[in-house]
Design a protein around this nucleic acid. Structure first.
Lengths: 342, 342
DNA sequence: CCTAGCAGGGAAAACGCTTACCAAGGGCGG
DNA sequence: CCGCCCTTGGTAAGCGTTTTCCCTGCTAGG
C-alpha cells in the first residue's frame, strides 16, 4: 500500500511549459473562453494536458472565477428512503448540469442544521437545498433565516423542500391536500373511525399531513378518534402502533401514519401484536417510498414524486423552473392495506 | 423573491479592517494556527467576524493550505438502501472529523464512474471512497486504476468498498463467506434443493455471494439447481422470480437472492404468482437492509453492518484504522422466510 | 504601398487565503 | 544595566487559476 513520495499535482503551469505556450494560452485552450486560440496551439495544449494527466484545480478555478460549480444538499438522514430518493433526484439533476453535490445530514437537529449551513456556506455553493424537516418551535429558525439571507445576498440561491417559513424559494409539497385526499378516499372505501400516528409535534410536514387528514375526515363526517405522536421514524411508527394497541384498538377501523416508514413500522407492530394489517385494521401511509409495494399487504399511501422533487428543487434554485411551475403531482394510491369495507 | 443586488461576500480582509488588525492576525485569530495571538486582538477579530457574518472561503483556504477538507464518495445509486446506508456511515464519520462529503452516482455505468472520478479529482479531495460495484469484465478498469493511481500519487487516498481488483485500500466484505454461511444455515434448517437469483454476470459482489453460496451447499451435499441472472435491483429480483416460476418451481425448496432488494422483489413476485413466501418456497437475501424486518415473512439474510462499513471506509482511507483491523462482523440472520423444515 | 483594425499570444494582476520572514518590544540572566 | 531571546504583530510571497491589458504581426481597404 506504500507509494512513491507524494509529488505535487500537475498544474496548469506544467501543462503550459510542456506545451511551450503561456499560462494564458493554456488556460484558454483548456476551457472555453471567449478568446480564440490557434488550432495548432490548442492541439499542443490538449496533448500536453492529456500526457500529464492534468486535472484543473477546482478550488483555484472557483477563486479565480469567483463562482463554484457546487450545490449543497442538507437532509435529515440519508438512510431514510424519503431523503435518499430526493437526494437521488438532486444528484441526477446536478450531474446533468455539470454540478457537484456536497451533502450533509442534520440528524433532525436544528442546531446542527444551522452549523452545517454555516460550514457549507464556506464552500460558496451556487445553491443550497434544504430538505431537512422544518419544525414550528425551532428556536434557531431565525438564525437560520439570517444565515441563509446572508448567503443569498452574496449571490447564492436557497431552495427549501417543503415550507421554509421564510422568504426563500421552495418546492411546496401538497402535504395538507394529500392528507385530505387520503381521508376522503378512505371514507369512500367505507371507513368511518380512525386513529393516526403523527410524528413528534411541531414537525411541520407531519402536522400538515395530519391536519389535512383530519379536515378531510371531518368534511366527510368521519372522525379522528385517537392520535399518538412518536418519533418520525420506522421505530416511532412501531412504537406508536404498540401504544394504540395497548390503549385498545376497538372501534378503530383504520390507522393513518404520516409517513410510509412509520406506516411500515406500524404494520409490523400490528403483526407482532397478533393482528393482521388490512384485515383487523387498515393502514395507510404517505410518500410512496419503494418499499411499500413489497410489504404485505401493499400499503395504501399518498404518492409524492420524490426524485422529481429533488430535481425540481435544484432547477428552482438555479432559476430554471418558474416559481409557479406546474404543481407536483400528488396522488392517493389505494392498495391492499385498505380494502373496501362492506 | 427578488433581493438586493449581489454584494461580494465578506472577506478576511474586511474582517481585518473592521477589527483594525492585519490580515495575518485576523487569519491567525480565526483558525488555530501555531502562533499565539493576544487575547485582546483575538477578541476584536472574533467580534468583527461575527458582526460581519464572515465565513471563510474554503476554496481559498484549500488553495493556500494546499489541502482540502473534502471527501468524495462514489455510489452506484443513492436511492438504493444498500448505498444509502453506506453513505450515511460515510457522512456521519466525515462529519465527526470535520470533513465535507461530495457525492456522485455512477448509475452502475463504468464509463460514468471513470468520468466522475476524473471530475471529482479536480476537487482535490483528501479521500475518495468508491462504493459502486466492481465488474469483472469492465473495460475501463485499467483506466480507472490509472486515474486513481495518479490521484494517490499526489497525496490522495482511495478506499474501495468491496474488492478493488487493484492495489488500493479496501473494506473487504465477506461476500463469499457470507454466502457460504447462509447456505450451511439453510441446509441445517432442512432445505436441500435451491435456486438462486444472481444479478447480472460479472458483478463481483453478486458473483462472490453466489459462489460462496454454491460452495456452501456443495460442501453440505445440497445442490443449487437453477440460477437466473436478472438486474441487480428490486425489479430484477421480481423478474428473476417470475422467470423461475415460469420455468417451474417444482422441487425448489428455497431461493437465494444475492441481495435484499432483489429478495424483496422476488417475494412480491411469488405473492403475485399466488405463492406464499416462506410456505410454498423459502426466500433468503443478503445485506440486511432495514426493510427486510418489515416484509412478510421477515427475510432471512446475511447481515452486513452497512453504516459501519461506510464509516470504516473513511477511517481506512484516512489511515486511522489498520488495514488489518478486525474484520467486519458478517452474520446470518434467520427469520420467518426460511422456517425450519420438517 | 500605406495605414487602420483586428486576431491572438503573453505578461501580470487579481481572486481570498496561509505562512515564512522580518521587526519591534519586553523580560530576564549575568 | 546591558544584551539576548522570545513573543507576537505585520509585510509580502505564494497557492493555481482566470482575465485584463498590452503588444505584435497580419489582413484588408483605399
Amino acid at each position: 500500500m506504500e507509494r512513491d513520495p507524494v509529488r505535487a499535482a500537475v498544474t496548469l503551469h506544467d501543462v503550459a511549459r510542456e506545451a511551450g505556450v503561456s499560462l494564458a494560452t493554456a488556460s484558454r485552450a483548456l476551457n472555453g473562453s471567449t478568446r480564440k486560440v490557434n488550432d495548432a496551439y490548442r492541439e499542443r495544449v490538449l496533448a500536453a494536458a492529456a500526457r500529464l494527466n492534468y486535472s484543473p484545480n477546482l478550488s483555484a478555478q472557483a477563486i479565480a472565477r469567483g463562482t463554484t460549480t457546487t450545490v449543497a444538499l442538507l437532509v435529515a438522514d440519508i438512510a431514510d428512503p424519503y431523503f435518499s430518493q430526493i437526494a437521488a433526484g438532486v444528484v441526477r439533476e446536478a450531474d446533468s448540469q455539470g454540478l457537484i453535490v456536497t451533502m450533509a445530514a442534520t440528524e433532525r437537529d436544528a442546531e446542527r442544521e444551522l452549523e452545517l449551513v454555516r460550514a457549507l456556506r464556506g464552500q460558496r455553493p451556487r445553491v443550497m437545498i434544504l430538505a431537512a424537516s422544518r419544525r414550528d418551535d425551532d428556536p434557531s429558525a431565525e438564525a437560520l433565516a439570517a444565515e441563509l439571507a446572508a448567503y443569498e445576498s452574496t449571490g447564492g440561491r436557497v431552495a427549501f423542500i417543503s415550507e421554509s417559513g421564510a422568504a426563500f424559494r421552495e418546492v411546496r409539497l401538497e402535504n395538507r391536500a394529500g392528507g385530505e385526499a387520503l381521508a376522503r378516499a378512505l371514507v369512500a372505501l367505507g371507513y368511518r373511525s380512525f386513529a393516526a400516528i403523527g410524528g413528534a409535534e411541531g414537525i411541520r410536514t407531519a402536522d400538515d399531513r395530519l391536519a389535512g387528514f383530519r379536515a378531510g375526515l371531518e368534511s366527510e363526517g368521519a372522525t379522528l378518534d385517537r392520535v399518538v405522536r412518536p418519533d418520525f421514524t420506522r421505530d416511532g411508527g412501531y412504537a406508536g402502533m404498540q401504544q394504540l394497541i395497548a390503549d385498545g384498538l376497538e372501534g378503530i377501523e383504520a390507522v393513518f401514519a404520516v409517513n410510509d416508514v412509520m406506516a411500515v413500522g406500524a404494520m409490523s407492530a400490528l403483526r407482532d401484536g397478533g393482528l393482521v394489517p388490512g384485515v383487523d385494521v387498515a393502514v395507510a401511509g404517505f410518500d410512496d417510498i419503494p418499499t411499500v409495494r413489497d410489504v404485505t399487504p401493499a400499503l395504501t399511501t399518498v404518492r409524492l414524486p420524490l426524485e422529481e422533487i429533488g430535481r425540481r428543487a435544484l432547477q428552482l434554485a438555479l432559476g430554471e423552473a418558474g416559481d409557479d411551475g406546474t404543481p407536483l403531482a400528488t396522488e392517493v394510491v389505494v392498495r391492499a392495506s385498505t380494502p373496501a369495507r362492506g
